[in-house]
Design a protein around this nucleic acid. Structure first.
Lengths: 207, 207
DNA sequence: TTTTTACTGTTCATCAAATAACAAATATTA
DNA sequence: TAATATTTGTTATTTGATGAACAGTAAAAA
């Protein structure tokens, strides 16, 4: 399958979550315009995304929710699942760990790392925190491919260099520093301050 | 000034942060390609954004950092600043509150809200947590215009309805539910699960 | 002084994403 | 049965964002 646009991947993830919610409401089929309404987008957008992944519905009954959930999984999940580590077990690290609790996804948070003795060896939401000195060994033992970076900004660059050199393949960066990674490592950055400043700008402009 | 594209606003916020960093390094002028390198974008993109806000440099010396910081502030900040409240003082709420500590921005986190007696009346990073029952009163007393939503997903929709009805103008939503707000309220959504699933997809595809 | 070099501001071209348009398919109604 | 209504899959159009090209300008070098 051809590589999908990033935006489509994001929406597929959101579709799946919405669909799981609909299943919980004992629905079995859903129309494109209903799914669209759940995400506040247009029905065309939904149909176009599903076209890209080659999913077809039973005409006039809508999409089979269970089937669609499975199809989305086949596309965006790795067959065997991927293992994730939280790097930096401060408030944010704990928050993210908590988010994953109980969610049966193909992404497994298998470890957390920190250098603070207060945090090392503690277990949060079922995830054990190791000293970062053990990262190299545990990275390969536990087959960790994705790192969620939630360390203080001044440590962001140094820690990233280590993650990369020990073989991490994807990084989700929550620090406020902009990182440098090689071609073969996928990097997604999220900056809270920027997000709030953006909200503030549009609030100001709306008045 | 005409409303700027959302992407440009995001970059302006990032430029400013990078510029403040350069100031700290005792630099006074910066070239477009240098600023671009700090954000891993192209020099053209930088010049284009600055063109949009009508900022001109001293030719061949680069941009005056102090002046540019001020210009960006004039564009994206509200003249008097805006007040922000954190709704939900779990790990994520505390993390965000901490992010703002010590940053002299025009955005002031003036209050936090929760319903858990364990959290109410506690002070975190200089921000006091109130019971959400007081939101209506404090919203207007403290002139809160922006809410950062960090409550459990099942409460997202109900809490949002209240924020809106009591006059909030912008919401940054960190819950995993998709919210509905009226036209005049600006909504920015961020979904961690989606972000990590996106990283996972591109890690999988890169191999 | 003249030439070269180094940047900028702006226009033009390309690429990606979102929206609109519409033929095809099937259930429902008349 | 024929006509209508509903929903899909796909193509075409528009919009928006990014990247490339280039003329203009000032400092530095010759």
């Amino acid at each position: 399958m051809k590589k999908l646009p990033g935006k489509t991947v994001e929406r597929l993830s959101e579709y799946r979550r919405a669909l799981l919610g609909s299943l919980a409401d004992n629905r079995s089929y859903i129309f494109s315009h209903e799914l669209a309404a759940l995400l506040h987008i247009t029905a065309v957008q939904v149909r176009r995304d599903l076209m890209l992944i080659g999913y077809g519905s039973v005409m006039r009954k809508g999409y089979d929710i269970r089937e669609l959930i499975k199809t989305i999984g086949d596309i965006i999940d790795a067959p065997t699942g991927l293992n994730v580590a939280i790097i930096g077990m401060g408030n944010l690290g704990r928050a993210i760990t908590g988010y994953f609790m109980g969610k049966r996804t193909k992404l497994n948070v298998v470890a957390a790392f920190d250098i603070d003795p207060q945090k090392v060896d503690k277990v949060v939401s079922g995830v054990k925190c190791y000293h970062f000195d053990n990262f190299k060994r545990l990275r390969s033992e536990l087959d960790i491919t994705i790192g969620v970076l939630t360390v203080p900004p001044d440590q962001g660059k140094a820690v990233t260099a280590q993650l990369v050199s020990y073989g991490i393949k994807g990084i989700l960066n929550f620090t406020t520093v902009s990182l440098n990674v090689p071609e073969n490592v996928y990097l997604e950055e999220f900056d809270m301050i920027t997000s709030i400043e953006k909200v503030a700008y549009f609030v100001k402009e709306n008045q």
